[in-house]
Computed example of a mutant assay.
Amino acid sequence: MSVEIIALFADWGPAVEAYRASGTDFYWDPFQRGEEPSFAEVHDLGGFKRFLRTESFYLDLEEKLAAADRERVEPFMRLIGAYSSPEDWKGYPADDIVTDSDGPTPEDHMFSMRPAKVVHALEVAEGIPWQAIEAACERLDLASGRNDVWTIGSYDEFAWILSTYIDWMKRAAEGGRGLIVLASI
């Protein structure tokens, strides 16, 4: 099974209108014709199934982090939709394109951020305690059951995934755009 992770750096108003009209088909229909939506720049990461396991890896990792470090990581994880403990969502709005369009959340949709939230997420990302995460990863039993293509197997992989999200946010912020992340499964 192939998984594609797609980032859209989108002009927010037109993206919301397109989503309201057709859900994520605003991306998939032009994609089938070899085109891109006129209001978004597309970055196709290609097949990387481990992106879909960011939350489960973090849930394993969080018990190894000190409380102060968790307080610095979890806001970012929530913003990318990778920390879904219901009681912890207080103060974190729902997915922006879904909220702004009053539409449903489709299966191929990982998360989205309006331009202001992209900037906020970058500010939150500045507080990620990378060294504490690396030390916590060293305390995880990464050898057992972590060698299939679906699982994150090291600090380097986890850091690369988070850094990829941060790079996408920087790219969106530079153009004053929102970020929409899709997964084709």
Rank of each mutant, 00 (worst) to 15 (best):
residue 126 E to M: 01
residue 67 A to K: 07
residue 60 D to G: 03
residue 134 E to M: 15
residue 37 P to I: 12
residue 127 G to L: 06
residue 49 K to Y: 07
residue 115 P to R: 04
residue 102 D to I: 00
residue 17 E to Q: 15
residue 114 R to H: 08
residue 142 L to I: 05
residue 85 S to T: 13
residue 166 I to N: 02
residue 93 P to R: 04
residue 181 V to W: 01
residue 146 R to C: 13
residue 104 P to N: 10
residue 99 T to K: 06
residue 139 R to G: 09
residue 124 V to I: 15
residue 89 W to I: 00
residue 148 D to A: 06
residue 105 T to K: 09
residue 75 P to S: 11
residue 82 A to I: 08
residue 21 A to T: 00
residue 4 E to S: 01
residue 172 A to G: 08
residue 183 A to H: 08
residue 7 A to G: 14
residue 112 S to N: 03
residue 148 D to Y: 06
residue 159 A to R: 00
residue 184 S to N: 08
residue 34 G to R: 01
residue 10 A to L: 05
residue 42 V to S: 04
residue 170 K to V: 15
residue 65 L to V: 11
residue 165 Y to M: 11
residue 17 E to Y: 02
residue 98 V to P: 04
residue 115 P to C: 11
residue 131 Q to N: 14
residue 10 A to G: 10
residue 45 L to Q: 07
residue 117 K to A: 13
residue 99 T to G: 00
residue 170 K to E: 13
residue 34 G to K: 06
residue 95 D to H: 07
residue 46 G to P: 00
residue 121 A to V: 01
residue 180 I to E: 06
residue 156 D to M: 00
residue 59 L to C: 05
residue 179 L to K: 00
residue 45 L to H: 05
residue 64 K to S: 03
residue 163 S to Q: 04
residue 184 S to Y: 06
residue 26 F to A: 14
residue 70 R to K: 11
residue 27 Y to F: 15
residue 152 I to H: 04
residue 81 G to E: 04
residue 137 C to N: 08
residue 24 T to L: 12
residue 4 E to P: 00
residue 90 K to R: 12
residue 68 A to N: 01
residue 60 D to V: 03
residue 173 A to H: 10
residue 114 R to Y: 03
residue 99 T to S: 08
residue 10 A to D: 07
residue 103 G to V: 08
residue 131 Q to F: 13
residue 57 F to D: 03
residue 80 I to Y: 02
residue 14 P to H: 10
residue 113 M to S: 07
residue 90 K to D: 12
residue 93 P to Y: 07
residue 147 N to C: 10
residue 14 P to N: 12
residue 45 L to S: 08
residue 94 A to V: 13
residue 22 S to P: 12
residue 66 A to Y: 06
residue 77 M to P: 03
residue 52 L to C: 10
residue 17 E to W: 09
residue 75 P to M: 06
residue 89 W to F: 08
residue 86 P to Q: 06
residue 126 E to F: 00
residue 82 A to T: 12
residue 140 L to A: 05
residue 59 L to Y: 04
residue 37 P to V: 11
residue 120 H to T: 12
residue 50 R to D: 06
residue 152 I to S: 03
residue 180 I to W: 00
residue 82 A to D: 10
residue 64 K to F: 07
residue 87 E to I: 15
residue 31 F to E: 14
residue 37 P to W: 14
residue 119 V to S: 06
residue 28 W to S: 10
residue 172 A to Y: 05
residue 103 G to R: 02
residue 66 A to M: 09
